[in-house]
């Protein structure tokens, strides 16, 4: 069973993602802020992380930096799921090591699922 960590502060989005991935047989952990996200990542060592950018306590970019700086976490693929779309943000996420960048409003849950499956192979 693949382990997934979702770092997202919006409860309704967490709920939709959790239901979608659980139904597909993933073991889902949920973090509602950046700090909790890092803590859970270290605890669970997931196969993949879905990361929002605007998060309480710690911004998504800082979370991404921390993940990439930690030897036990740096190889976990991170998919950024956000509604920010400026070229500077997309570039920064990719530079920091994100494997993908999806705009939540423009992607259906099925498409997010397909992207995750594609990255996990």
């Amino acid at each position: 069973m693949k382990k997934l960590l979702i770092i997202e502060d919006e409860a309704a989005l967490q709920d939709a993602l959790q239901k979608t991935f659980t139904a597909e047989g993933y073991e889902v952990s949920q973090a509602f802020d950046g700090e909790e996200g890092i803590k859970l990542a270290k605890e669970k060592i997931p196969d993949m992380i879905l990361l929002d950018l605007i998060l309480p306590k710690k911004h998504g970019f800082e979370v991404l930096q921390d993940i990439k700086a930690d030897d036990s976490l740096k190889n976990i693929p991170v998919l950024v799921l956000t509604n920010l779309e400026e070229s500077t943000e997309v570039m920064k996420a990719i530079e920091l090591g994100a494997r993908g960048y999806l705009i939540k409003a423009n992607y259906a849950l099925k498409e997010v699922l397909a992207k995750v499956k594609d990255i996990l192979g």
């Binding site: 919006e10 309704a12 989005l13 709920d15 939709a16 993602l17 239901k19 979608t20 509604n83 920010l84 779309e85 705009i103 939540k104 409003a105 259906a108 849950l109 099925k110």
Partner: peptide, 17 residues
């Protein structure tokens, strides 16, 4: 526009479910 996207994506995903 960015702020509007948050509730719009909540509606989109919940409707899809």
């Amino acid at each position: 526009s960015h702020q509007l996207r948050s509730p719009l994506s909540v509606i989109k995903w919940q409707l899809e479910l």
